[in-house]
Design a protein around this nucleic acid. Sequence first.
DNA 1: TCGTTCACG
DNA 2: ACGTACGTGAACGAT
Length: 389
Amino acid sequence: MEQVGIAIDPAFFEETSQKLERDLRLIEEDIYKEAGEEFNINSTPQLREVLFEKLELPVIKKTKTGPSTDASVLEELAEQGHRIPTLILEYRQLDKLKSTYVDALPQLVNPDTGRIHSSFNQAVAATGRLSSSDPNLQNIPIRTEVGAELRKGFVPADGFRFVSADYSQIELRVLAHLSGDETFMRAFRSGADIHRETAALVFEVDLDDVTADMRAAAKTINFATIYGIGPYALSKQLGTSVQEAKTFIESYFERLPDVRQYLDRQIERAYEEGYVETLAGRRRYIPEVKSKNYNIRQFGERAATNAPVQGSAADIIKIAMIDIHDALDQRDDGTRMLLQVHDELLFEAPAAAVDEITGLITERMEGAFELAVPLRVETGSGASWYECK
DNA sequence: TCGTTCACG
DNA sequence: ACGTACGTGAACGAT
């Protein structure tokens, strides 16, 4: 992947940069008008002074150095009816896209190959994941439409198409496997929507009676479980009281007792053995659990529950990558693996071979490791990364 | 070099 | 009384 690199469309990036520049200038003017002065919007101290001293907006949250101006704070201020926070949020979003991606990536095209060659670091992340740097191609925007459109600038070589394949819910499937929880495993074997199933379970309703809000809450709880759950953080995320969050967590583990037992066992292992391990036997040592500091110890416990799940998913995709690389070597039709983004692989394949290659990739990814529940892969293809969705 | 912020899974 | 979800990397401003 490092050697092959990936191509971009320089004209797309140039046009996007100019458009963002124009949009930013307009927002900037509005911000200065609201503030009654010009200042550096990118400077946290200067922005702090304008928001919390000059305009006397309420302080929502503090950092070590003063009032926080992060997105959650600005969103709350916007809800209170203030005009400037929304403008700052829009400015931040576009400035991030322009400086981190649109203006930076074209400068990193290697003149010899005409492509961008990221590094995929294999001994950085504590869980066994890869990381990507110089540039990081594992954090190209996708969550907002304006951000996702940057993926239109990543393009296959002439005569080729992109093929992307991503594991569906791999971490929750790994958790179902590791815990052996019957209810969880049954949900995955039925091929159903796992967040909907979880909602039905936690809220004690029929599958057909699960509302969008219930499903969203269940999804958040599922992620919280993988991360090492805490009532306070969950309440923040759900926008509920801490008490309600506690009730959700209690209900969740009551219905999934083997999940709770498994997670508790990992914490116990960290205390007793000093480490936890993944499916393939990768260890993460957790010295934090020996700390006298409560917060550090808590962090250690969350790491102990998260690392086997995140790390086992990393084991599985690495095995798939090796299998696929071998298979592509055999075929020798020019298909190349370009990127790995934790649960997704991106390839470029000769246009005529897309369907066959998609099948090959799906089989190898789904068959990389046999769990107690099936592994599922979703695929896409297109003339840009954006089109692969 | 550090702190803050924000992009991703 | 305190602080508060896992794993990363990059840009920017301040020091």
